[in-house]
Computed example of a mutant assay.
Amino acid sequence: MITFSATLTCQYDAPFSPFSAADLNKGLAWLKASGFDAAELCISDYQGIDIARIADALASHGLGCTTIASGQARKREGLSLLSQDSEILRRTRQRLFEHIDAAAVLGSYVTIGSLRVADTPLNATRYCQLLAQGLAPCLDYAHARGVTLIVEALNRYEAEHLNSAEDMVQFLDLIGSPPQVGILWDVFHGNIEDRDFAQAIASMGPRLRHVHFADSNRAFPGYGHLPFDAIYRQLRQFDYQGAISLECLCRPSAQAVIDESGPFIQRFRQL
Rank of each mutant, 00 (worst) to 15 (best):
S253C: 03
I265H: 02
R91P: 11
Q47C: 13
Y12R: 11
C248N: 11
H161Q: 11
L24R: 01
E260L: 10
F97A: 09
D85P: 04
F238E: 14
R53P: 05
F171M: 07
D167Q: 02
I49C: 12
L24D: 07
A6F: 02
A14W: 02
G176A: 06
Y141Q: 06
D45A: 10
N123E: 10
I175H: 01
A136T: 01
Q133C: 07
Y223K: 07
L130E: 09
S60P: 08
D101I: 01
V257M: 09
S34M: 09
T3Q: 14
R126H: 12
R95A: 14
I2L: 12
P178Y: 00
A22N: 10
R251V: 15
I68A: 11
N25Y: 08
D215C: 05
A103C: 06
T67R: 03
R116Y: 04
V211N: 04
V110E: 05
S203Q: 08
Y12N: 15
A230M: 11
A254K: 06
S70A: 15
R53Y: 03
F213S: 08
R236K: 14
I258K: 08
G78F: 02
R233Q: 15
R76G: 13
R218H: 02
R233W: 04
K75W: 11
L115V: 02
R95G: 13
R90F: 03
V117C: 09
G48E: 08
H161I: 04
F213R: 00
F4Y: 11
L122P: 04
C42R: 09
L135I: 04
W185K: 00
R93P: 13
Q234P: 07
F16G: 12
I88A: 08
Y240R: 01
L96N: 08
Y46N: 11
L208G: 05
V169R: 04
D13P: 06
N191K: 01
Q94V: 04
R209T: 05
M204C: 12
H225S: 15
A52R: 08
P252D: 11
Q72N: 13
L96E: 07
A219Y: 01
H225L: 13
G27L: 04
V181D: 10
N217Y: 02
A69Y: 00
R91W: 07
Q72Y: 05
L115K: 00
K75R: 14
P179I: 10
V181A: 15
I201L: 07
F19I: 03
L8Y: 03
F19G: 08
H99M: 03
M168N: 08
H143D: 15
D119H: 03
T3F: 05
